[in-house]
């Protein structure tokens, strides 16, 4: 079976600086995969290059199609969802409007409805008509994930969802990720901390200096203390 997302020898540049030096990895349908690494090793750049937000050089195949060079909106329409690390909510629009914008068209019946979102995170329903910009960081994080789900992706790439969140919110985000996976949606989780990643991932990749430096299961990772020491611990 071929992978849902297949990335081969991916390079990316910001101006003249070479950020990604040949990244190779894949994600199968319905799989939860974590991409770990310290700040600045190119994890966020990797997903931005996959989304076409940073020009990718190399092979990026999604659902059997070569997507390198396509426009971000075309890539999103193929079923790739992206949740940015800076929680890009549309601050002046209401929570409901933010969720509506997650849908790719007005008549879209996907895996997720607005009611699902309200059930998963009731706070969104309570605040449905308030501007998203006034919500707390954790609430905005939940909203960004839910907004992307409204577009019914087959794979969601989530950049540092627990960054700066209180332990209770981290747990909520973890539960949401589990719910996403239970509906057969694949997840690429980009994290620096291991809290959620080790609990839910099927496989892990560790990045260092713009390359993949470790690949394996959670058990492999736990058995290999030197990886953690060399590439993750600060």
């Amino acid at each position: 079976m071929s992978a849902l997302l297949d990335v081969q020898d991916l390079h990316a540049y910001y101006g003249k600086s070479h950020i990604l030096h040949g990244v190779n990895f894949h994600i199968n349908a319905g799989e939860i995969v974590s991409l770990l690494g310290r700040n600045g090793v190119g994890r966020s750049t990797t997903i931005k290059a996959i989304m076409g937000d940073v020009p990718p050089v190399g092979v990026v195949r999604f659902a059997g199609r070569d997507i390198a060079g396509m426009k971000p909106h075309q890539i999103a329409r193929l079923g790739l969802g992206y949740v940015p690390e800076n929680r890009d909510v549309f601050p002046s629009l209401t929570v409901r409007q933010n969720l509506l914008l997650g849908q790719k068209s007005a008549r879209q019946a996907g895996r997720w409805s607005m009611q699902d979102m309200f059930r998963i995170f009731p706070r969104l329903e309570e605040r449905a008509d308030t501007p998203a910009g006034v919500m707390s960081g954790g609430e905005q994080q939940m909203l960004t994930i839910c907004r992307t789900l409204m577009g019914d992706p087959d794979l969601v790439m989530i950049d540092e969802p627990t960054e700066g969140l209180a332990p209770m919110m981290v747990e909520l985000v973890g539960n949401l990720l589990a719910e996403i996976a239970s509906r057969g949606v694949a997840i690429l989780l980009v994290e620096q901390k291991l809290t959620i990643a080790l609990k839910i991932s099927h496989r892990l990749y560790v990045m260092g200096h713009g390359r993949i430096v470790f690949e394996g299961s959670v058990a492999d990772f736990n058995a290999n203390a030197s990886v953690r020491q060399e590439w993750l611990e600060v």
Binding site: H73, F90, G102
Partner: peptide
């Protein structure tokens, strides 16, 4: 305010 994010939600921003 956020053209890139809108595009990555699948809207044809151009």
């Amino acid at each position: 305010t956020h053209p890139d994010m809108v595009a990555m939600l699948g809207h044809n921003v151009p």
